[in-house]
Design a protein around this nucleic acid. Structure first.
Lengths: 199, 199
DNA sequence: ACTAAACAAAATAAGCATATCTTGTTAAGT
DNA sequence: ACTTAACAAGATATGCTTATTTTGTTTAGT
């Protein structure tokens, strides 16, 4: 457990605070090793600071973990919201991008288990994670509702919920972010078709 | 590890052979304990036969496991095929039932990890499991293709693939078979709408 | 707003001997 | 076409001791 050269590149020109930099490094290490096997020393080294320095920013490992995941989820939801709000672009593209931020980011050889880390440590951040999921679902539902003239019988939320499940399923089936995007584009296209032409 | 009274009820009137009865019991035990923790003794007791009797039917534990899973998958695919072939019924209902046989069965407090057992023992039954999935996907695609007059640009297979992912996703979100069916009905309804009104 | 050095307490890992379980087989019987 | 009884070999679990890590804190320094 001695990851040499795993320092996160960071010049003095960084506009983000040290705190944010540390959280990014922490998320990387947590994603790589899981909560249990990631040591504060690993994270401190990855962030390029000393271990006591870590404790200057965060009271405990749990605290750091919570902060790192919160930051990631905050960023994901914000990015998704940003993408969905660009009403000039086709709804289809905005939805795909939103799902990419929410789910697609966490697919791949290196980061593939970060979602798993969150899932398998429910005690550490419940009900936080669930709330973010609800928020994202709300964003998608809103975008869908706004994207069609009428909303008879709450079709938009049905489409949203189905889309969320589809994204979940695709995530489990694919092994790369590109594949996720291709499959998700198809799914979004089909379900938008259903929404537009709903009875 | 002494499950008393876990005998599988079985009268002498059973039309199915003893072999099938044993496989059913084995699947139950494998599902409950996982491959590793399920002992041949557990299975023999559940099947109501002696442990050497088990070895009369199956050469090894792996053999038994493979046979049990094969039987289950065979049954699931056959049931799905049967449901899909009842062309008098609405396609929607047939699809939901097919997915119930394929996925819905394996949701619930007791049997929820049988799919997990299959997934987490890839060495024991690959590429078998993948082949069944492909077969089921083919059945769904065929039913969709037959269900609509024209099939421009392979929409049917797109819908099929998306539906498979949706089912996967719902399965991971839901905790009861009933909930699965409700959610799946919505998903099937929407994607059929997309298929029917595809450009 | 940190660093390096050092520390206690607790958790985790490693090693190892012993006990229990499990697999697969055999034999004798019905 | 099975049963019970018994067995060897191997795997797995258990308990225990000893090392190593890791967390969280402190102190002194820049």
């Amino acid at each position: 457990m001695n990851p040499v050269g795993s320092d996160v590149s960071r010049g003095k020109e960084s506009e983000a605070g040290r705190r944010e930099h540390v959280l990014d490094a922490a998320l990387l290490i947590f994603a790589r090793y899981g909560y249990r096997k990631a040591s504060m020393d690993d994270i401190a080294r990855a962030a390029g600071i000393s271990r006591p320095g870590l404790y200057f920013h965060f009271a405990s490992k749990q605290d750091l973990f919570r902060a790192a995941v919160t930051r990631a989820l905050d960023g994901d939801v914000a990015a998704a919201e940003r993408a969905l709000s660009e009403t000039g672009r086709p709804l289809r593209d905005r939805l795909v991008e939103a799902f990419d931020h929410w789910t697609g980011r966490y697919i791949g050889p290196m980061t593939q288990d970060i979602a798993l880390v969150i899932e398998s440590n429910p005690d550490l951040l419940e009900p936080m994670a669930g709330e973010y999921a609800t928020r994202f679902a709300g964003l998608v539902t809103d975008a869908l509702t706004a994207g069609v003239p009428v909303n008879r019988g709450g079709v938009a939320s049905d489409v949203a919920q189905t889309l969320l499940s589809t994204a979940m399923g695709i995530k489990h089936e694919v092994s790369s972010r590109e594949e996720f995007l291709v499959r998700m584009t198809v799914g979004v296209g089909l379900l938008l078709l259903a929404l537009e032409r709903a009875p």
